[in-house]
Nucleic acid binder design. Structure first.
Lengths: 153, 153
DNA sequence: TTATATGTAATCCGATGAGTTACAATTAAA
DNA sequence: TTTAATTGTAACTCATCGGATTACATATAA
């Protein structure tokens, strides 16, 4: 799981809070990264129908789904990521030793189990949950960000 | 979680199966990596009292604990690893926006939850479990590796 | 005393994450 | 129609990290 996941979640929550088209520059500034990276990640979310985009003046990205119906597993799969991935393989299928032969499959299985458990956790966390955590008194009564007027970009 | 984890599990299972001192070269050959890497990883397992070592002729590493009492969480913590780690941080604590301010903590919390769930899974998998998977008919009746005679190194 | 091992550091290489820049294509608005 | 703003995407650089390799001092059994 790379930091793309953190960037994507942060971006979606930001879009959800703004409730209007937001440019990649503005998102990048809020997340603290660069616009090209944001656009690259937004493209994946667009392919997964999680956000929408519009070019030109007043354009950018927008989140117009129900926050309670989008969860973190949706975002993870939109990025084509896993919790843990099994890249380096131990042992050798051609060795006449059951340990050398079989351990890679054992490891694969362990990683799968961890992934599945992680997915179940992510499925239970929605964008709405995160918004409620960030704004325990409601977004309208936010005492720092207010309702995100221009001066807080 | 890096591949060290896979190497460590494979090595411990191999030592458990061999039931005698095994050199880093022999372990490396079975795992398919290099001896220096094995020694580095063995050192961490030694510090955690999971394996023992002996220098000189006939030396190497040995696993002399009860396979049913060592689980994968022991190994993971011996390596000082986590399932997922939170290195790249999004947002900015100095920004007057609750999203930019709070999202990093939200992400941290999600990662922690995933880690804890993963630890619980690893705690339930012992070295004995893996040996039983690799040798469903018992280690003595192993039809490929036999009881790991010299010709199968 | 010698051969075999570990412990550990130094170095190299390749892959990958992240930032930066650039520019064609698209779209809204003047 | 023109202009300005914005995305989509590729190319490039840079730093970091995982892994392999080499080397050598130290320890131990025979």
């Amino acid at each position: 799981m790379t930091a793309e996941f953190a960037v994507a979640i942060h971006s979606v929550v930001f879009l959800c809070h703004k409730k209007k088209y937001v440019s990649s520059s503005e998102i990048a500034d809020n997340v603290c990264t660069n616009p090209a990276r944001i656009r690259k990640i937004m493209n994946k979310l667009i392919s997964a129908n999680i956000v929408e985009t519009k070019n030109g003046v007043g354009g950018g990205y927008i989140f117009s789904l129900k926050p309670s119906e989008v969860n973190l597993f949706h975002i993870l799969t939109a990025l084509d990521e896993k919790i843990v991935s099994h890249k380096w393989h131990s042992g050798d299928k051609n060795k006449p030793c059951q340990v050398a032969f079989g351990m890679d499959a054992v490891t694969e299985n362990i990683y799968n189990t961890i992934n599945i458990a992680g997915y179940e956790i992510l499925k239970k966390i929605t964008i709405e949950d995160i918004i409620k955590t960030l704004f325990p008194n409601g977004e309208e009564k936010a005492n720092i960000c207010g309702n995100c007027k221009k001066n807080f970009i």
